[in-house]
Design a protein around this nucleic acid. Structure first.
Lengths: 130, 130
DNA sequence: AACGCTGTGTAATAATATAACATATTTAAG
DNA sequence: CTTAAATATGTTATATTATTACACAGCGTT
């Protein structure tokens, strides 16, 4: 399992930025923010994001095309993610629910397909926005 | 609840196309296919897709930016979707599992947020690709 | 008839993401 | 140590996905 120490310069810069935000960041907003650090092209951002997703440091919120840091130290691989998304303020929170995770991990469809990964996004209106 | 009969010409053309495919179609591939029917611009496709998603006739596969018809007559609103996606051949199947649906429908996070919708995508390797 | 709502058609552009190429750095094996 | 493989970099160009803005049409309501 790859540790943060082994991340490259670009990967560190981008992970730092995402970790400082408690909300998902979009690739081109990241690009804008890291230009002062010498990262000039979209591809440099996307390459770092791809790696960070792969090692589980960040997750992609598929319905929003945005990236958020994973705060769960156990979650070292991006294979099982659950998010809560407010459709009004767009606030995103990662959900860790043992029972739900168990249920999803053990889920088998009727074709017997084995799943190595899942992504679940819940949508609603958060307390602040009600 | 809106019935298919009330769909407009563009909406019908695009729904027909998606229903004929058992796999998700991308917006620009749809555009290409319906040009012969007089639909010329991306926006015409996206507008129809938006409506069809809203009334539950089709679903968007968020991780693939593609659209698939909903074969479940009960599923008239795009509020609760579960898909199986093969990461090798990209085959996508909608999953209807009563127990899982129940579990997800009843899920409440520890902040007491109420969810009106969810989207779950399972990833793995299908039987053909193993 | 005037309004609100929904849809249409068109042009332009924004936002998201990858291909292709040349080069550098790190890692592991011989 | 050196060679090969794997991974990362920097840059340019381009592909793909999606929306804004504007003018107007059709329909049901009041």
């Amino acid at each position: 399992m790859q540790k943060q120490e082994t991340l490259t310069k670009n990967q560190k810069i981008i992970l730092d930025l995402i970790e400082k935000s408690d909300q998902p960041l979009k690739a081109y907003s990241i690009l804008f923010d890291v230009k002062k650090k010498g990262i000039n092209a979209p591809l440099q951002v996307y390459r770092a994001l791809k790696k960070l997703v792969k090692i589980g440091k960040i997750h992609k919120i598929e319905s929003r095309n945005a990236f958020i840091a994973c705060k769960n130290s156990k979650c070292q691989i991006a294979k099982a993610t659950v998010f809560s998304i407010c459709e009004s303020c767009e606030d995103v929170t990662e959900i860790h629910d043992h029972k739900l995770s168990e249920h999803l991990r053990d889920f088998k469809d009727n074709k017997g397909m084995k799943y190595s990964k899942y992504n679940l996004e819940f949508f609603g209106i958060c307390k602040k926005c009600v």
